[in-house]
């Protein structure tokens, strides 16, 4: 009965694994993009320059207000369209190109992650003790040194629980890219179900795999939190 999971032509094992690889790649590539957007959004909303602040808050409100799948469609179709328009303007006789669903997934998921991460990071910045920064100033550190040596290491303590949640959400949201024809775990599962007519088996397998990834993430996050809290007395 395990034949359908086997590797090769007879089973679906290799297809599912390939799907899993895409899902993991997507999540891992999205993370730094999302964090970068998150930091930019946090800096913008903490800025003393009012238009920048408005931009930061505006971005957050819009992104939080859209269903993820809609963001994905807008990015996939919109950016694809834009890409082809620019291409035609630059080189009128070029054939239309396809916008990679993987890149669309990274951009869309990164934008969503970034909007929420921006709020988490803004909160974390505001929780930092001002005295820590003053001590850095008083000793003659530059703003850059203060950010890298004092604020950033202390930020994780406040930001990690929130960012951990966002990571797990994003890991599961990667399943959305199956609707724009990226062969991720979700889509390969659906294909397998369609061919074998064994929905229960393959959906259960997908459930177990997603859940295993979440558990693994939780273990890693717990370790990171432990490290971020070094030197802090636990209540």
């Amino acid at each position: 009965m395990f034949e359908i999971f086997s590797y090769g032509d007879a089973g679906w094992g290799d297809e599912i694994l390939r799907g899993l690889a895409i899902t993991v790649q997507l999540a891992i590539v999205t993370l730094p993009v999302g964090l970068l957007i998150g930091f930019l959004a946090a800096f913008a909303s903490l800025s003393e320059f009012r238009p920048l602040r408005a931009l930061g808050f505006g971005y957050t409100t819009v992104m939080r207000g859209l269903p993820e799948i809609l963001t994905l469609f807008v990015v996939y179709n919109g950016v694809g369209l834009l890409l082809n328009l620019t291409l035609r303007w630059w080189k009128p006789d070029a054939p239309p190109t396809d916008f990679s669903p993987f890149v669309a997934g990274v951009i869309a998921l990164g934008m969503v992650f970034g909007a929420f991460a921006g709020e988490v990071l803004r909160g974390a910045f505001q929780s930092l003790d001002k005295g820590q920064v003053e001590a850095g100033r008083a000793i003659g550190m530059t703003d850059r040194q203060i950010f890298l040596r004092i604020q950033l290491p202390q930020l994780w303590r406040f930001a990690l629980p929130g960012l951990g949640n966002l990571w797990i959400n994003m890991l599961k949201d990667t399943a959305l890219v199956s609707v724009i024809a990226l062969d991720d775990l979700m889509r390969m599962t659906k294909v397998a179900v369609g061919v074998t007519k064994q929905p229960f088996t393959f959906y259960l397998l997908a459930c177990l795999i997603y859940w295993a990834m979440c558990v693994l993430s939780e273990v890693v996050l717990a370790r990171m939190e432990h490290r971020a809290n070094r030197g802090i007395r636990r209540a």
Partner: peptide, 28 residues
């Protein structure tokens, strides 16, 4: 920054960097 590095400062709340040991605080 030059002036600051030439003047030491002690605070009411000490303001040691919480994520660094005593030795690391002094070396920073």
């Amino acid at each position: 920054e030059d002036i600051r590095s030439r003047l030491g400062m002690l605070f009411q709340q000490f303001n040691l960097w919480t994520h660094r040991t005593a030795l690391e605080n002094v070396m920073e």
